[in-house]
Every structure is written in structure tokens, then in C-alpha cells.
């Protein structure tokens, strides 16, 4: 199976006081649809946006995004 970018955005939003997708989108300057696409692993963000997302949760990049091989999450 081809490697792909997976992320922990959903869990991190939950840990951050159930931050909404809209709030996160506004923090990093994208649309809510883009956050939905990233969470659903249908869109891989640019490096710049990945850093912005990590910064929004005050986490290092590797705690938010991973590059791995495996089945897609349901």
C-alpha cells in the first residue's frame, strides 16, 4: 500500500476544548471545507499549512502529521 499522510487533527481539536473546524480554519486562514478534507485524509496540506496547523495546537509537526503505510481509517 502506498505511503500517505495521516493526521491527528480531529483528536487535537477535541483535546483543545472541542475546537470547531470553523475556529481552526479561521486560525490558520483556510476554509472549513479544507479542514474537513485534511481531517478526512483526502487532501494533504502544504508544508506551510501543516506548520500553521501544528502551531495552532502548540505541537511539533510530527505529533500532528505522520507519513505511514497502512489501511485508510474509516
Amino acid at each position: 500500500m502506498a505511503p500517505r499522510v495521516v493526521n491527528e487533527l480531529r483528536r487535537l481539536r477535541f483535546d483543545a476544548g472541542e475546537m470547531t473546524q470553523q475556529e481552526l480554519a479561521e486560525r490558520v486562514g483556510v476554509t472549513r471545507q479544507t479542514i474537513i478534507a485534511i481531517e478526512g485524509e483526502k487532501y494533504s496540506p502544504s508544508l506551510e499549512l501543516a506548520f500553521k496547523l501544528a502551531r495552532a495546537f502548540a505541537k511539533p509537526l510530527e505529533e500532528v502529521f505522520r507519513y505511514e503505510t497502512g489501511p485508510r481509517r474509516g
Binding site: G29, V30, T31, T34
Partner: peptide, 10 residues
């Protein structure tokens, strides 16, 4: 009103 983001550009 929404900003055009990188996914829109892609």
C-alpha cells in the same frame, strides 16, 4: 465570504 486557500488554488 471565504478566503481563497491553497486547496482552492490546487
Amino acid at each position: 465570504q471565504e478566503p481563497q486557500d491553497e486547496r482552492d488554488v490546487a
